[in-house]
């Protein structure tokens, strides 16, 4: 018994030895926030990203691995606005970690720092899987990344005051690079203004707000409800009356509905990364928007925009 115990304690001691001298353990709910924390925190943070670009952030389970990582986190960086409501509350409660409980200094929600769109006037599950505080997919507008970067950088400095100047410098550098990139993207995105499109899920309202693309129809009858073939036929009718240039889906979504519409309506179906790692081209925060714009412009026939 005693030997078993000492072996067990030994194993725990070995596996819990700090791997590096990173000051802050950060648990990022989605890849875009993981990437942003890495941009702002550099080698002073050790980032664990809970989901990948190939996963639907609504449909995650409170897996044992997530609980174990949340246990040692100093900071969680999540979208909020109920995007993670199906799993984060469970992870937080099971993680036995006072630092990251809701309302604690170590719980950061990006959505509480930006203006949310599509706040539902009617809260009813008959409207599908809606979010009471508004559409949570804020990362599709790169201006929101800039808005979130400041409070996130302040948060890092608050939790790790010894490196406050470091975080401040990195933030200033990030703002400089991001502002330049924004100007480039705005110029590139000019041909997208006013272009009518169909979407699979209502994930793109912030992106459309930025680029001026116009959403004509969504393939999901209600948010989160997969379309039936009957409903797709209705969408096809509508698209014939009100033509769209393309149909857009996030990388984690089922390709079949948008490919059906693409074939029937003879329009391109465009898979967009949606977040960092969603496509091979979207390896970091900057290339996420490069790749997104490139794919859309290519579908429009603007090949000259290739980076």
């Amino acid at each position: 018994m005693r030997t078993i115990l000492s072996v067990l304690l030994g194993v725990i001691a070995v596996t819990t030895a700090p791997p590096a001298l990173a000051a802050l353990n950060v648990f990022a709910c989605e890849p875009e926030w993981g990437a942003l924390v890495t941009e702002l925190g550099g080698d002073k943070v050790s980032v664990y990203v809970a989901t990948t670009g190939r996963q639907d952030p609504h449909q995650i389970q409170a897996r044992p691995s997530l609980i174990a990582q949340a246990r040692k986190a100093d900071l969680t960086v999540c979208t909020g606005a109920e995007l993670e409501i199906g799993w984060m509350p469970m992870v937080e409660r099971s993680a036995a970690n006072a630092r990251i409980q809701p309302g604690a200094p170590g719980a950061f929600e990006a959505a509480s720092h930006v203006r949310l769109l599509e706040i539902p006037a009617r809260l009813d599950r008959a409207e599908g899987d809606i979010h009471a505080s508004g559409n949570p997919h804020i990362q599709t507008d790169p201006r929101n990344i800039l808005t979130v970067a400041k409070p996130l950088s302040d948060k890092l400095a608050e939790l790790d005051p010894a490196n406050a100047a470091y975080y401040d410098n990195r933030h200033a550098d990030f703002v400089h690079r991001w502002t330049q990139a924004l100007q480039r993207w705005q110029a590139e995105a000019a041909p997208l203004k006013g272009v009518p499109v169909a979407v699979q899920h209502k994930s793109w309202v912030y992106f459309f707000d930025w680029t001026g693309l116009r959403e004509i129809v969504a393939l999901e009858p209600k948010p989160g409800i997969p379309p039936s073939s009957g409903y797709l036929a209705q969408v096809l009718e509508q698209v014939r009356r009100e033509p769209v240039k393309m149909v857009i889906r996030a990388a984690y979504e089922d390709p079949r509905p948008s490919e059906f519409l693409s074939e029937q309506a003879k329009i391109p179906a465009v898979e967009l990364p949606f977040t960092v790692g969603g496509t091979d081209g979207a390896g970091d925060l900057f290339s996420l928007y490069d790749d997104t714009l490139h794919r859309l412009l290519e579908a429009l026939g603007h090949d000259s925009s290739k980076p």
Partner: peptide, 14 residues
Amino acid sequence: ATPPPAPPPPAQPV
């Protein structure tokens, strides 16, 4: 003249 990135309006505390 120059297209500056228009920042979104500041957050409204809810």
